[in-house]
Nucleic acid binder design. Structure first.
Lengths: 147, 147
DNA sequence: ATTACTGCAAACAATTTGCAGCGAA
DNA sequence: TTCGCTGCAAATTGTTTGCAGTAAT
């Protein structure tokens, strides 16, 4: 899981350290959108120690390497997810429990390009978030991780 | 411009103070998406003094009153815009100069509702942002207010 | 008179930075 | 060895909160 990151580091003659690999491992093997704090906690639970600053510095590296993408769901902090192979996708966020579901819709690229053009802009990218209630939260009562 | 806010305050038996009116005036008469700091600076330039805390506390009031909406463009701080009468609109943001242009597209409501449903979610709302270069920045060289 | 507001400064949370010491290459 | 990394703590930034004093009702 961490091989591509190690490769990236070597290619750029940057030290391949235990902390960097551990952080990459946690994030790259996860299928969730993790915050810096969640990564720190995960490392702690695995009895791997890495200072907060190191986590942030490594996240920078992972983002510039292209292996990880940064997300901002307006929570007041950032989240990170493995880039995987999905070229562009959108997020469905449960307003109650916070679960994030990804989806892809081809129409959006075309649509946003047209909208941009009709406003005199040249499109570079877009971001769509849908908020709502997931099936679970709808079935059971109020959720927990609300915001 | 500040009349509806004064009305709101009176209806809720809350003091109508000079600071509150000044902050509402700055924001409600603006057609931009202002940050708390920009509002503070604007007040300063008009020689009106209001502490940062007061600006934030008044912004809370304006948002709960429904006269102002809060936005998060992932800049690390929030922006506020008068609610006006536009029920729902999206943002086109210039990646170079930061200018924000609003647009509306009816299809999005339907489209996002369907997408949510096909993923087992009940749609509550959505947010679409398109990033690109505005006509000006495209014509002239590199912009200034990049991020 | 009440009650809520205001400014100020301290408190906070997420993130960044400076620096001495440690560890890859 | 030589850089660059790491931990730690201090610094930053956007925002919130506690409190004594002040102003709106």
């Amino acid at each position: 899981m961490t091989a591509p990151f190690a490769a990236y580091l070597r290619e750029h003659s940057l030290p391949v350290t235990a902390q960097r690999l551990a952080i990459a491992e946690v994030l790259l093997s996860s299928d969730r959108h993790l915050s810096a704090e969640e990564i720190s906690r995960d490392l702690e639970s695995r009895s791997i120690r890495a200072a907060t600053a190191t986590v942030y510095r490594t996240l920078d590296l992972l983002v510039t390497s292209g292996l990880v993408v940064e997300r901002d769901f307006g929570e007041g902090f950032r989240r990170f997810e493995p880039a995987r192979d999905i070229p562009q996708h959108e997020h469905l966020i449960c307003a109650s429990c916070g679960v994030v579901r990804e989806f892809r819709d081809e129409r959006l690229d075309r649509m946003t390009t047209l909208i941009a053009e009709s406003n005199g802009f040249t499109r570079q990218g877009h971001r769509l978030e849908i908020r709502g209630l997931c099936a679970d939260c709808l079935a059971h009562g109020a959720g927990e991780r609300a915001r």
